[in-house]
Design a binder for these strands. Structure first.
Lengths: 236, 236
DNA sequence: AGCATACATATTGGATCCAATCAATAGCAT
DNA sequence: ATGCTATTGATTGGATCCAATATGTATGCT
């Protein structure tokens, strides 16, 4: 019974990776092959191959006779990754400026509208310490932010660049990032303003200004996350 | 008899990757698990895991019921990769400028001396169509060039950046690149001059100038390789 | 009680097994 | 001959097996 699904291993790696990102397999925890095999109703063989892929992508660490451990990046790792990400997305937007279509700009504008509206709601939720309203709006924050950045990367037309940026995101449990980025009203509005500046520059097709705005935006977000992590003693 | 070597799979992936880079498994060729297993005197299991790692790193492509194929990047892929590499090494040097030690600058200066000397010999070899002298000097070209760029990346102090740049190099059979870069005296001297400019800027600790020189240098090399490939109908 | 040692169990890692799929060849009809 | 079909052989892919190592627990000693 070789392969019922098209690419089982790839799909397993994706699903496991997603759950790491979601924090369901927390940083530092061990991934037992037998348990994963049972969970996904397959044998250990494809699980092992999926884990090797995640290892190659830097999501997990493989200790010789001990198995796979979800990596727990420290402040320095995050600072390094954001430095690189700022640079790559800076490149992306400087390329995108030349090739972006009006339709894509429109998508960014819409994403930005949703982003601003969500930030407004999150700000209110934060002010009233309304955890429920907060949780309800975080997915919208993620969606509109991803769309905004995604359009830029797509418009850059560089597939390799896209792949690298995507891989950079793996390995950081999203929930912790989000906590840092969606907790404070002032910082979130700062984010909105940065997006606005980016949107303005790209609309004017001003490559160098767009790049500057984008790298600044990402570096600032990175600093915020690092600050947040350090102020509460590490990730996890 | 679990694991005699510390990390068998990793070592296999490295060795197979090296041979791909060396062109011994040429682009487009199929990698048969059984053959590899025999070659490295192991069973198919660790081979399969190593192939999964290489797949995750973008060195090979995994077609569902057909196995692994060495990727054959086209001109566009190479252009994309060099665009990214230029950006990443640009970032690396702008960071390195701040942290580089005198000892590291000295290492760059030495590498540059060897590089210039080797280019001189290669130029003579090219002028006299002396293929033997050419082949004899290419390893020196590689070594001094790698050292030059390696010091910069090391001095950047960003490990993630280093990892990314290393992975970017995988998947391009080196021999073809080298052919493009070491064939013409004028281009090689241009390369030497670019290294000189980089060295000057980094010695003066001029970050923006160093970055400009580095990105220019790499973009130019990329163009040269693409031109070379297109003028002889694709890789391999 | 605290600590070290020894044993039992759990887990990994390579080898092997077999079904499913693909590639190649041979056979057949047009 | 050329093109199509069927069969054989090669190869992949998931499951299973067993040895080696690590982990966890119980036992004995100070």
């Amino acid at each position: 019974m070789a392969t019922s699904a098209a690419k089982l291993v790839g799909s397993l790696a994706e699903r496991i990776g997603a759950r790491i990102l979601a924090g369901e397999y927390p940083p530092g925890s061990r991934l037992r092959q037998e348990a994963l095999a049972a969970e996904y109703a397959v044998s250990r063989t494809p699980i092992r191959e999926a884990l090797r892929q995640l290892e190659a992508k830097g999501v997990i660490q493989h200790v010789p006779n001990q198995g796979a451990i979800v990596l727990a990046p420290d402040a320095r790792d995050i600072r390094e990754a954001y430095q690189v990400r700022a640079e790559l997305e800076g490149l992306a937007i400087s390329l995108a400026v030349e090739w972006i279509t009006d339709e894509q700009i429109e998508r960014m504008r819409n994403a930005q509208k949703r982003f601003a509206a969500t930030v407004e709601k999150l700000t209110v939720a934060a002010r009233m310490s309304n955890a429920k309203a907060h949780l309800k709006n975080v997915p919208n924050w993620v969606e509109s932010n991803d769309e905004f950045h995604g359009v830029v990367i797509e418009a850059s037309g560089n597939k390799r660049l896209r792949q690298l940026i995507r891989d950079l995101h793996l390995g950081f449990t999203r929930s912790v990032m989000l906590a840092a980025l969606t907790m404070d009203g002032r910082r979130m509005r700062e984010n909105v303003a940065q997006h606005e500046a980016i949107l303005g520059a790209i609309t004017r097709h001003d490559a160098s200004e767009a790049r500057k705005a984008m790298t600044h935006h990402i570096l600032r977000s990175g600093e915020l996350i690092v600050w947040w992590l350090e102020s509460r003693g590490g990730l996890q």
